[in-house]
Design a protein around this nucleic acid. Sequence first.
DNA 1: ATGGTCCCCTGACCGC
DNA 2: TGCGGTCAGGGGACCA
Length: 269
Amino acid sequence: MPELPEVETTCRGIQAALEGKIIKRIVIRNPNLRWPIPSAVSKLKNLTVQAVKRRAKYILIITHSGTIIIHLGMSGSLKLVSDNVRAEKHDHADFVLENLCIRYRDPRRFGAILWTVNPPLTHPLLSALGCEPWDFDFTAAYLLQRAKNKKIAVKQFIMDQSVVVGVGNIYANEALFLAKISPLRVTNTLELKEWQILIKTIQQVLKKAIQLGGTTLRDFKAPEGKLGYFSQKLLVYGRGGELCPCCDALLESVPIAKRSTVFCLQCQK
DNA sequence: ATGGTCCCCTGACCGC
DNA sequence: TGCGGTCAGGGGACCA
């Protein structure tokens, strides 16, 4: 499912095709995503795209008259296709350009396509988001401060998008493993030094995933239609019961907040 | 305010 | 081969 690296990969993939170009029209085949696609979207015509940006897991297509906000949910993807390619099942929307369209596909329909004429970062979905993983203010001191009154598991904490954006379940598992911190640790027990390490491993795992083009999980495809291949590099996620890559212990698999969590009891304290 | 649970949806997978 | 059950998962909504 798309996490930040997949969204970043998608963003980069459509950027060149969109920036400075005109979206002639938007075809909506099925508006029933997580929220209904606003009817205003299908009425938009000839939008000049100024920029394509990412904020957290949202893709922002900024035009002269407003911003299209796209979230890929769990199974969403954007692909470049030539405009005569027939839409298949789950291809819910097309952003039609000259000779080309950007096709939104989302089998599970957890994603969203929204429209705002206000500055996009003031949108209710975006306004309360936390740091980007590479922000200067994403520091150990910041995490310590945010964590000091919290008693949830550290894994939940780093997946909280109001703390830091873009760390979904897969990368939370991976980053905690690399940091040698147990996902079960109660948030307010982590020390400054541990937050420092965790910041580094979060950045490391996300950066690597972006370089590799995003994790392939079931139905994820990069915009060009290529499969990402980070999944083969995952150290713990999806490997419950297998051997720890670092020691001879078996990897534990327990749910935390209903999310599958894999870790090594021996390596992660 | 904080934390816990539910739910949206479909495809993959598993056991019979 | 077919079928039913279970699971996964982002994140808003809702409740204690």
